[in-house]
Design a protein around this nucleic acid. Structure first.
Lengths: 349, 349
DNA sequence: ATGAAAGCGCTAACAC
DNA sequence: GTGTTAGCGCTTTCAT
């Protein structure tokens, strides 16, 4: 009934209205260079024919694309990372922020910053800029190369010294320190940490580990190498980590799962299977504050990266500002500890 | 160092190589209409200058966009639905399938099929087709209108009689029937159902409810209205549903959570809080088989919609076939029951 | 207030 | 094998 097949371009509309294409274009763009009546008349015709201007053509002419590409600089084979609800939270919040600014979100076909530089999307005009997820361990030489290209981009993650690009994220070190101090305040003495990195200063996992160390120091607790366990981003990895701890240092009474909530949930499962009570025997704090934290057994205390509380919005705005040619500064916020039951704050033995 | 600022178009490359733009274009498109050497020479120059052809321009010329829009026909305010890990699974599997076919995924700014028809994207040339998430309760008159527009689209969901469009999904009725029979086989007599719809034949929730009824009948169990509870898509809703059941029919010994695993997890939490043992006191089966099912306490038995097992791939292929002008048929698969511990299959009292 | 014409960057006949 | 030309659908000077 609608969408007459013969009306495909602005020229068609113009023909139907008996005006030139320029006039039709102006009408549809709400220009005030034409008379109100012709404008209304043309709009009505367009409406009747369900006509939409071809955005690709408009973008070509205007040299813009009104879309942003979101890059996950992880291996696509790395299902663990991509299946993480946190990523979804990023997707949702960033997507909303872009939508509010009339931008589209393009999901990267790429898995690697390198490809972002070398390949499609930005250079090819599909996107005006990029939002890069930073686990912190992005190869810094690649990041430097990316800066060189003048491609507008921002990173979701912590700020590094002299990074040369704009990032928005929480302070991993401070947030972790806070979490560990919180556990210590509940009377925990043997606090373990599960993280995905203990070596590279640039990695988020490492920074969280540093915060852990500071938290221990703040609380006057000794450091024990045996209480540190490496994990991946998979739930299974958290499960395995607990089994390891149970064998080597069975007297641990708390765990800061710095990797992610999903890993914490795997850890909880292992604790249940070992008949350890949470939080009575072992207290837990996770990272990311995914929605699920409310429904684990018991509910999981976690650190929020505050995506909903302005981080996603700020990040997006900075990118668009940058695209508009403005100078933008990085921001690092304090994470927020969301206390539920797993940390033992309300339910002590 | 790379990306010389003066090289922006194919014409620039052509100029540098001392050839015509067509030759340059052919070289970059790997046409075999030109000599190997010129091709290599031109490619090398392009490489040195990090040149990428402008995809927008190419698409305009070729009248294609190489991208597909994914539409969630839900209110964006409906956080419960969008925060569901199942949606993420859809995103991931569909995204991979498209990537494998060199298509990009555009996330819809829209929340409504209506807007898909009236608004941007397809008519505007940004996408060649759409993948629509079907909770089954999409307004059928809108779907009919969508068919009218000749916009290529496929629906991820069950097939309805005479729907007039292509869909790929599992058979909700059969899958649910199977789940309920499975619970009955474990000796459960008072099997409750939590679903989001008990009235509209078109809704997935309703179909699952029908499957539940058939499963009961198969097992010779009587139907009890009090064992049916409505829920939304939020974990909290599952929690509330259990509290309701505990008050009205405390003798239930199993629950089929037809809404989603997240709701099942909320339900589990409520059962824990009420000191009900899972599965000894109450057995559970969820829907969607999200990754997390392995790490709930106990692990959650669930029905897989088989996204990873071909559904996403099939769906994508059918859409592209349709875009290519082929006639495509709907497919309805059997869901797969993934047995874990919550259903009591391995751990009976 | 409106129209004619040029051009965004690319590709594909159609020449030669 | 390579170049010339036209044109995808749109916007925007510049003229009238």
């Amino acid at each position: 009934m609608n969408a007459k097949p013969n009306v495909k371009t602005i020229a068609d509309i113009a023909r139907l209205a008996g005006v030139s294409t320029s006039t039709a274009s102006r009408a549809l763009r709400d220009s005030d260079l034409i008379s109100i009546e012709t404008k209304e008349r043309i709009k009505k015709i367009a409406q009747e024919h369900s006509f939409r201007p071809h955005l690709g053509a408009r973008n070509l002419r205007l040299k813009k694309s009104n879309s942003i590409v979101l890059v996950f600089p992880f291996d696509y084979a790395d299902q663990d990372v991509l299946a993480n609800p946190y990523i979804f939270k990023v997707l949702g919040t960033v997507g909303s922020a872009l939508r509010a600014r009339h931008y589209d979100l393009l999901l990267s076909r790429l898995s690697d910053i390198n490809m972002l530089i070398d390949d499609l999307y930005i250079h090819s005009g599909l996107a005006e800029g990029a939002i890069i997820l930073g686990r912190g361990d992005n190869d810094q030489s690649k990041m430097a190369a990316l800066v060189e290209t003048n491609i507008p981009f921002v990173v979701l993650g912590p700020e590094h010294d002299n990074q040369g690009y704009c990032s928005v994220g929480i302070d991993n070190r401070q947030s972790s320190r806070m979490a560990v101090k919180h556990l210590a305040k509940q009377g925990r003495k043997r606090i373990a940490i599960i993280s995905d990195n203990f070596d590279e200063p640039i990695a988020e996992g490492y920074q969280r580990y540093q915060g852990y160390l500071q938290g221990l120091a703040d609380a006057g607790l000794p450091f024990d190498q045996n209480l540190t366990v490496l994990s991946t981003y998979a739930g299974q990895s958290g499960y395995d980590a607990i089994q390891l701890l149970l064998e080597s240092v069975p007297d641990f009474d708390a765990i800061f799962v710095a990797t992610s909530d999903i890993v914490a949930i795997g850890a909880m499962q292992a604790l249940h299977d070992a008949n350890k009570r949470i939080p009575q025997d072992v207290a837990l704090v996770g990272f990311d504050n995914i929605d699920l934290c409310d429904f684990t057994n018991p509910p999981l205390t976690s650190i929020s990266q505050r995506l909903h509380e302005g981080v996603a919005d700020l990040l997006t705005q900075k990118l668009l500002d940058q695209i508009a040619g403005q100078q933008v500064e990085s921001t690092m916020l304090q994470g927020r500890l969301v206390v539920r039951q797993s940390c033992g704050a309300s339910v002590l033995t």
